[in-house]
Computed example of a mutant assay.
Amino acid sequence: MSLHLLKTNSFTNSNTTFPLISKFFKKSHSHHSWLIYGNQGIGKASSIYKLINELLSNTANTVYGEKDYYHPDLLVIDKLPEKKEISVDSIRKINNFLSLTPLQSQFRIVLIDNCNYLNTNAANALLKILEEPPKNSLIFLISHAIGQLPFTITSRCIKLHIHNPTYTSSIQILLSLLEDINENYAKKLITLSCTSIGLAIELHNNNALDDYQEFIGLLNNIRDISIKQIWKWLDNVEDWKYISMFCHHFTAKLLKTASNLENLYYINDEERKLIYSLCSKCDISILIELYESIQYLLKECTIANLEHKQVILAIFNKFRNITLLNDQPI
């Protein structure tokens, strides 16, 4: 079963998404496993913690929120900051936890955040739990990359898809949260983050918008730049995930523009002109191949722990080859 929640106008989802989740849960409360998915930074975890608060509200203890929580009938599992994945040892804790009788509430509740980071052994261990869940147990999975989860797991859950806020409402929310920015800057952050408020705030805090605009500048002069210039830019960007995000964002926007999709927003005129120029050089089949090959490189870079600089150099070469089509400068 899959449920799609309407776009919300609240970052915390307290006015819209949480009531919808609560309503759906009450209708299907007999089901033990729930998968909440959507992009990062749109309030998935906030909404589920509100639901958990509601489920445990008749007890003496209180579940306060994502970082400050404790309840004897709640087990929270997440990827540790220093780890790349959620291990099987973390999942094994669930068996012991769910084997006990609820102490202060009706349920024993397990919340697995960022469940797309489950390694193979952890996913297999979780599958066994989902197949034969103990009585009075509830398991909530939160994912920002549902495609990375095995079908055997997703098929055993009721799926709730939380959509991003609208473009206009995202800008207003961001302006209310970051009082030191203007509307034009907020629009750029929202465009780069694809209306993810949490990601937009993170990009702002790490000055990542400047890094992306330098990335566009490099692509715009792809025929003339040297390897040293590319590597210098890479050294200035602190986190690999931003570099990966820049490549994904640009190629996705390139493909959407070539597909003549409406209501597309661009970071600035330089990005828009560059994308239109690249689209004019080749048909959409070549751009689809470009998108798929770049996504493959980014994925393999993470999985196989490839050298980041060599992967980005290969991606820049792919863009250079596109500009050479018809041998016309950008």
Rank of each mutant, 00 (worst) to 15 (best):
M1C: 06
M1A: 11
M1D: 03
L3Y: 14
L3Q: 04
S10Y: 07
S10K: 06
F24S: 08
K26R: 12
K26E: 13
H31R: 06
Q40L: 02
S47W: 04
I48P: 03
I48T: 10
L55A: 05
L56Y: 08
S57G: 01
N61I: 03
G65T: 11
D68L: 13
D68C: 06
Y69G: 08
Y70Q: 13
L74A: 05
L80P: 06
E85K: 02
I86A: 01
I91V: 15
N95E: 11
N96S: 15
L100Q: 11
Q104K: 15
S105M: 06
F107W: 15
R108Q: 13
Y117K: 02
K128Q: 07
L130N: 02
P133T: 06
P133W: 05
P134M: 08
P134Q: 07
L138I: 05
H144S: 14
G147C: 06
P150E: 07
C157I: 11
H161E: 14
H163L: 15
N164I: 04
T166L: 14
I171V: 12
I181R: 06
N184L: 12
K187V: 04
T191G: 03
T195V: 06
N205D: 15
N206G: 01
Q213K: 15
L219R: 02
R223T: 09
I225H: 10
I227N: 07
W233A: 03
W233E: 10
K241G: 01
C247H: 00
H248S: 15
K253A: 05
L254E: 00
S259D: 12
Y266V: 08
N268A: 09
N268G: 11
R272Q: 14
K273S: 14
L274F: 11
S277I: 05
L278N: 04
C282E: 10
I288E: 01
S293A: 10
N305F: 10
K309R: 13
V311I: 15
V311R: 07
I312G: 06
L313E: 08
A314S: 15
I315K: 01
F316Y: 14
T323S: 15
Q328D: 08
